[in-house]
């Protein structure tokens, strides 16, 4: 049974057809990389898959059920990471992670461990406004270590992350896929430490009318 599937998606932005009649099924263990030039609709596709945006036409299924009719269950099993990290400047790294975990109904006993794993040890008590852009995104990505949501939808997770961080994340992705989760991500760089045969690619292209 596919974890998440898209049925006949049509997306129109600013009177431009980004994709039409797009259907896909994503199974446990899949790592899906969505490619395409800027403005080809990668972010729109991810936002539609996560239920944040409504498609012009078509719908999204979670375990063969419309996500609008199983909102709570779907959101419990979804981790979405967008362009914006969702980290508050006025709160410390730890407070941010605690809130984010609790907001998604997770226990947050080990948030210090997760921060250490994502190389933020020593910054737990610093206000996010004092941290760099990359550290901001790390705070948000620390949620990945508390991984009980099988569906990961990640929009440009490697932006502003250093090389070591990227390889750490890649290992995290393949481990997540092995455990029976799925990862859907957009990135402009090739995945290095994940074997190419493990990654399925979807390429969105411009469709000039």
């Amino acid at each position: 049974m596919p974890l998440i599937s898209a049925v006949n998606l049509t997306c129109i932005r600013e009177e431009r057809l980004l994709f039409d009649e797009l259907s896909l099924e994503i199974y446990p263990g899949d790592i899906i990389q969505i490619e395409g030039p800027n403005g080809s609709g990668k972010t729109s596709l991810l936002r539609i898959l996560s239920g944040l945006s409504q498609p012009y036409d078509g719908h999204i299924l979670y375990k063969n059920e419309k996500i609008s009719s199983c909102r709570e269950e779907f959101h419990q099993n979804l981790l979405y990471f967008g362009h914006l990290s969702g980290v508050k400047d006025e709160m410390t790294a730890e407070e941010n992670l605690d809130f984010n975990l609790a907001l998604h109904g997770n226990k947050n006993e080990e948030s210090l461990t997760y921060l250490a794993k994502i190389n933020l040890a020593g910054f737990e008590e610093s206000l996010a406004s004092h941290l760099s852009a990359g550290q901001h995104r790390r705070i948000a990505l620390a949620r990945l270590y508390h991984n009980n949501a099988p569906i990961w939808i990640l929009d440009e997770p490697f932006t502003a992350i250093d090389k070591q961080g990227v390889s750490g994340l890649e290992q995290l992705f393949s481990a997540h896929a092995q455990r029976g989760g799925c990862v859907i991500l957009t990135t402009h760089q090739d995945l290095i430490s994940i074997k190419p045969e493990q990654v399925k690619k979807i390429t969105l292209d411009y469709d000039y009318l």
Partner: peptide, 8 residues
């Protein structure tokens, strides 16, 4: 966005 995606 994160709030809208929360199961609450």
């Amino acid at each position: 966005e994160q709030m809208l995606l929360s199961p609450h």
